[in-house]
Design a binder for these strands. Sequence first.
DNA 1: ACCCGGACTTGCTTACAGCATA
DNA 2: TATGCTGTAAGCAAGTCCGGGT
Length: 781
Amino acid sequence: MKILRLYMKEDSKVKPTPAEEPKVNKKEIIEINLKEEANLSTDDDDDKLVIKDEPSSQDEADEPIQADVSAASSCDYNLSHFKKNESVFSENEESESQTEIKVEVKEEEDSDEDMPLCNRSKLSARVSSNKRKLEDDDDEEDDDIPLAARKKPKIEKKIKKEKKKKRSFDDEEEEEDFKPEKKPKVKKEKDKKKIKKEVSQPESPVKGGRKKKEEEEVEVWKWWEEEKKDEGVKWKFLEHKGPVFAPPYEPLPKSVKFKYNGKVVELSPEAEEVAGFYGKMLDHDYTTKDVFNKNFFKDWRKVMNEEERELITDLQKCDFNQMNAYYKEVSEKNKNRSKEEKKELKEKNEALIKEYGFCIIDGHKEKIGNFRLEPPGLFRGRGEHPKMGKLKKRLNAEDIIINCSQDSNIPKPPSGHKWKEVRHSNTVTWLASWTENVQNQVKYIMLNPSSKLKGEKDWQKYENARRLHKCINKIRDDYQKDWKSKEMKIRQRAVAMYFIDKLALRAGNEKDEDQADTVGCCSLRVEHIELHEKKDDKEYVVVFDFLGKDSIRYYNEVPVEKRVFKNLTLFMENKKGGDDLFDRLNTMILNKHLSDLMPNLTAKVFRTYNASWTLQQQLDKLTNEDDSEAEKILSYNRANRAVAILCNHQRSVPKGHEKSMEKLKEKIDSKRDAIKDAERQVKDAVREAKHGSVKEKFVADKKKKLLQRLKEQLAKLEIQETDRDENKTIALGTSKLNYLDPRISVAWCKKYDVPIEKIYNKTQRDKFRWAIDMAGPEYRF
DNA sequence: ACCCGGACTTGCTTACAGCATA
DNA sequence: TATGCTGTAAGCAAGTCCGGGT
């Protein structure tokens, strides 16, 4: 792998700064800083921020980087796949700096366990208060504004948005080829025949429960044994039935009244439907939020008729209680449906899936991921989303673009309707798409993860990550050197890469004003980190505290290399809390650089790489050949958990966790009692047996066996207990599904003789079929 | 060189089926 | 037989990244 290092000239252009606070040219800042440095740093020549050409390399405190995966309190594995003995960082000697970072999974005042994660502990909005050790200037005026409310001045954004909106309005329909294409009739026949043959799976006779389902599964063909040829073409033939529309609105019974200002008001169906969306959610936290209510009310009024609009002017005066009660009643009724009804419904649903849930792609029948269009409703953004509560409109055929083969049976729109467009683009993988009206984003109907299309990509992803392994040393070396670059941009880039590599941070694209204020690496702001020269007997600690994807809080105290620390100090100089930490960097620049280092390398690959690598290391470390199966699985889960912690995958404490824990404890206690009892019995029996006959001996043996079994059961329960408790705020699913090379798990299962079903459930096995097939016990990531 | 939208992956929550248990 | 629990799938929001147009 050839690695290009670009030492470019300091770019002449200075990033435009917000108008109100004329900022110093970055170059100047460096220089200023250097002067200061020169003055200050008398003793520790260790870390001059060199700007001259030759970097002062020798006396680097070249410490190896450690992945920070230490667990939250309870579990104490201390992994570090970066450790030198793992040979990843072989060039870096010494340094025992055991990094021990607490991933403090929100521990404030026990209170809010039941809320969705993003609503919890609104992140110490005061993260960046004056505690800063290395006092930069003191102008942090917006410390008291909650994070989400802080705005970066972005005027052009507004204009952009306007434009967007306009576009979405006036690009009404422009009809297109909706009549089935006649021309390739012959080919069609042929194709169809072929498909028929492939598709008509042996119809499984109904053989009760599970079995039946298994057999009805889509055919699995070993695409991974086929030769790969890409060229951007995703398929040759694609046929499907089109999406399933949301069921039409059924007006409420007349007895369900809506009241305004205490008086019953009869709503038009349109207004009623939308009111119903709100009424249904009355118990939800959302309806207590200002933004939500405002947005809802505004959009609701839009669908009202003149009269209604005139009358209903204040949400406070609206009474949705009857609607709420009605919906509750309905769902109650649904729960109590009779067996027959349930069965009927199920059959109907299965028939629907059978008809619409599959497509034919290149001669194979494959499951579609989401063949149902999203029903109308109120938008529920996560975190402090400015658009929460807006009305998500009902979709019609006129909104939908169909994508399929020209020579396939083109799906029919509902009678009286026309598709927005039918296109035949085989360079994309979606079957249908539409533009959602709240965020103005395209949404898609795509294939299930078990499909070839998805599987192949998944496989590629992990191969790519494995490729990174081959040059990770070089890359790490490189960015460590770049910490001393004389160019600000490169320094920032290098520090960002370090974060991404070490902490598995996301890239952090820029976001629009009209989205929740969350950040990733490149979009970190000064207010999101705190620097401590010393914290709890650790040196050079960076405290991260910000809201990441889905407004999940990321909190981490990380000891870093001195040079990184100094650089951060430098980056924060003369900035306010709301300013970008890496003002010379964005994801594009970063990814551009990464792709120069290795083809197809992007920020996200590091996450995949580090996750999978961590899993492998952990599995190696935690698994004992002669553990019981349950113990091995616990080890696996622990390894999995380490990854989840690394990637900050959280979840809200499941409802009734407390209760279920208690129950488990009870069970354990009673098991213990049983064991005591059994022990006593065994003792007695043994005594009897000593001078007894064969029969007594037999009894004693039996009792012993029973005791043994009880003990095993107890052990299992205890394992379950720790496992469950350690897991309460950590979500394993995401990493399992998206970050861990399944071949590692498969290999582990094969090596230690654990049935794959214990690790992957049915869906997961489908998704990872390729890996199950591909990897032997010797596979290494 | 940047902006923007399109395409696709990632991530959390919710609803529900199916099972065990009382 | 009703009830409660648990694991799974569905749902959909929110990221990443790329490429085309200007």
